[in-house]
Design a protein around this nucleic acid. Structure first.
Lengths: 139, 139
DNA sequence: CATTGACCTTCCAGTTAATGGAAGCCTTAA
DNA sequence: TTAAGGCTTCCATTAACTGGAAGGTCAATG
């Protein structure tokens, strides 16, 4: 199977599939003409990778998940640990974004958004420390 | 003022400050010895940039916000528009992460996480389309 | 048989926003 | 004088692709 078919079946662009080969996530055979020759097994692996990436796992996570997937002696605890760590990363990211969102939303609502230059958003970004005039800035 | 002092005052690492100069966000003077020589105004700008970046604005947003900040003829609507677009980006990102979180959390709870190889997480990642055998794959 | 168009190949560059490190000045104090 | 610390530039690296150029392959058509 050529890369175009695999792209369609796996949902990954050809560029990405080539990249995944380059970093060793798949090892397709080669036809006599130099074209990559994928087996169904490769398609399956690539779809697996696509789903893992869609869940936000890093490439390194994917590499490890794939290794576990192919190891029938694995302990599910190993998989779960990777997933839990990722879940924590996601939670942290969401918290960070929620914090940004709160501040930004507040500022946006406070801004008239008209022709006048007065802007609480810029005022906040420019905000000097409230006690700035108490700080020795001559140093 | 040397870069080290500016770093301390602005909260940005020296490396980042040099980078911001490289991409034209600040233009410090130079002393006779070749050292960058920052004015209070530069420190203020850098702190502004640091706060904007902390709110997740891109560097390009920062460039535009800074230009508006320095233009006393600006309309607050221009600032608000940038902020609103960013808010939307944040909301999209949060939604995406929340979706990942939901799926992943579900899978993690379903996984025993013991010594056995059975794992719903891997099963899901490997999941072929439920109706795969009904799909014409010969096309 | 030649050519066209759709594939495929490799290789190089660019993306975001820094960060790490090497090699080498400048300054100051012991 | 020499050592420490701060400063300089330049180059490489990060994550995970993506875009594009130059060129080989293949199937069908004129």
């Amino acid at each position: 199977m050529n890369i175009g078919d695999v792209a369609e079946k796996s949902g990954l662009p050809p560029k990405t599939i080539r990249y995944y080969e380059e970093i060793g996530l798949v090892r397709p055979l080669r036809s006599a003409n130099g074209y990559r020759n994928f087996l169904e097994r490769d398609v399956h692996k690539l779809a697996f990778l696509g789903r893992a990436r869609a869940l936000g796992f890093t490439i390194e996570d994917c590499r490890n998940l794939m290794a576990l997937y192919e190891d029938d002696q694995r302990a599910s605890s190993e998989v779960k640990e990777i997933a839990e760590q990722h879940l924590e990363r996601i939670d942290n990211k969401i918290a960070e974004l929620a914090q940004m969102r709160a501040t930004l939303s507040h500022l946006v609502h406070a801004c008239a958004g008209d022709h006048r230059p007065d802007c609480p958003i810029l005022a906040d970004l420019a905000a000097t420390c409230p006690d700035e005039d108490l700080i020795d800035t001559t140093a």
